[in-house]
Amino acid sequence: MISANSDVVRLLADPLRDRIVRILAQGPATTSHLVAETGAKQPNVSGHLKQLREAGVVTAEPRGRFTFYRLVPDALQGAALHLADLAAQARATADAFRAC
């Protein structure tokens, strides 16, 4: 089973999802904003937003005729801490060769 933090890291490995997250880090945006800024097709952007919502990285907020998407900072922070823990473990065990 994949942990939520690992899932977030995996999701951000996709270049378009990474770009979407970077845009949303500048503030909430609609699908139309994201399509215009990424140059990707609307169905593609919507599919990526769905994956990000399901992982808890993005929330959707209806405002009139539009839906704005915003980042969930705690989800990103959790993934960052997960990577920091892995880096610390790798530093601590860099010279601990396993017996053959």
Rank of each mutant, 00 (worst) to 15 (best):
L16H: 00
R17D: 05
R17S: 10
D18S: 15
D18T: 14
D18G: 14
R19V: 01
I20N: 00
V21H: 02
I23F: 03
L24P: 00
A25G: 09
G27R: 02
A29M: 01
A29G: 01
A29L: 01
T30E: 09
S32G: 12
V35W: 05
V35N: 02
A36M: 12
T38I: 06
T38H: 03
G39M: 00
A40G: 10
A40W: 08
K41S: 14
P43S: 05
G47L: 04
G47C: 02
H48C: 12
L49H: 05
L49Y: 03
Q51A: 15
L52Q: 02
R53V: 13
R53C: 13
R53H: 14
E54F: 09
E54T: 09
V57W: 07
V58A: 04
A60Y: 03
A60M: 01
E61S: 13
P62E: 08
R63D: 09
R63T: 10
G64C: 04
G64H: 04
G64T: 02
R65Q: 15
F66L: 13
T67F: 06
T67W: 05
F68M: 03
R70I: 05
L71W: 01
L71E: 00
V72I: 09
A75I: 06
A75T: 07
G78C: 06
G78Y: 10
A80I: 11
A80N: 12
L81W: 11
L81K: 13
L81D: 11
H82Y: 15
H82K: 10
L83H: 04
L86K: 10
L86A: 14
